[in-house]
Design a protein around this nucleic acid. Structure first.
Lengths: 125, 125
DNA sequence: AATAAAGACAGACAAGCTGTCTGTCATTTA
DNA sequence: TAAATGACAGACAGCTTGTCTGTCTTTATT
């Protein structure tokens, strides 16, 4: 997967939140005042997002409408895989063991995690 | 935590593998042939690593010796936190639930994870 | 119909980042 | 004393990134 920049991510998130957005609605969600140049900036980032295959464009109406080509969940999965590749030789277990010992992972979270594993893979206990 | 570049990471990993390395031993581990300029490149990256507080430098001997100021484990934790901040509003549970459902996370891994939770937090079952 | 508004698009741009390299000086070694 | 080694400052090209300008086309308004 191509790397994504902060500006591109901001726009992709708008599209996730609101499918079939136009460049203007996206710009309005990001900037308090939408000038011509700000709109052009959004369009440029959309152009790059399309080039990187994060987004597709419906050209049938005058104002093009955009749709994400990757789901939030899938995107997160890819980001995590990249991190595993970069820092753990591709292995994901170090990520899991690190995360469950992190500060923000509470007793309640542990309980939910146990339940999730039990639900997703019953008969493994 | 400051962002780290690929070149800097390569060098930090050498220091993790071999504490108290000099710029030369690091360069020898990275490049097949160590020219003057390659050595200078390593030194420049070490300078930046020091500036970013990833590394400290012992200046007592002529050839400075380098030590990591952050452990591999701590570093990974920070990377994961950054990812959570960027993509999940700081929450880490989405990362965990995504990871355990990833392709590379096997039945054996699940078993190990159950055991790890049980070992780290007994009396929670 | 004539004018104005809105959109797409190409291109340019400054700022910043990144790895590399050169040259200079100081220190150690042969 | 000469040569080798190391630290360091600075420069550099190539790339990235968000922004902006200008032009053309299409739609809306008068």
């Amino acid at each position: 997967m191509e790397p994504i920049t902060d500006g591109e991510l901001l726009i992709l998130e708008q599209i996730w939140d609101n499918d079939l957005s136009t460049s203007r609605t996206i710009a309005e969600a990001i900037y308090p005042k939408v000038s011509d140049s700000k709109l052009a900036s959004v369009q440029k980032l959309l152009e790059r997002l399309e080039l990187k295959r994060f987004v597709k464009r419906d050209r049938s109406s005058r104002a093009h409408r955009f749709t994400a080509l990757i789901s939030r969940e899938n995107f997160l999965q890819n980001q995590l895989r990249s991190l595993a590749d970069r820092h753990c030789d591709g292995s994901i277990t170090p990520l899991v063991t690190t995360l469950i010992q992190a500060k923000g992972f509470t007793k309640k979270n542990r309980k939910q995690l146990r339940k999730l594993i039990d639900d997703l893979w019953p008969n493994e206990r």
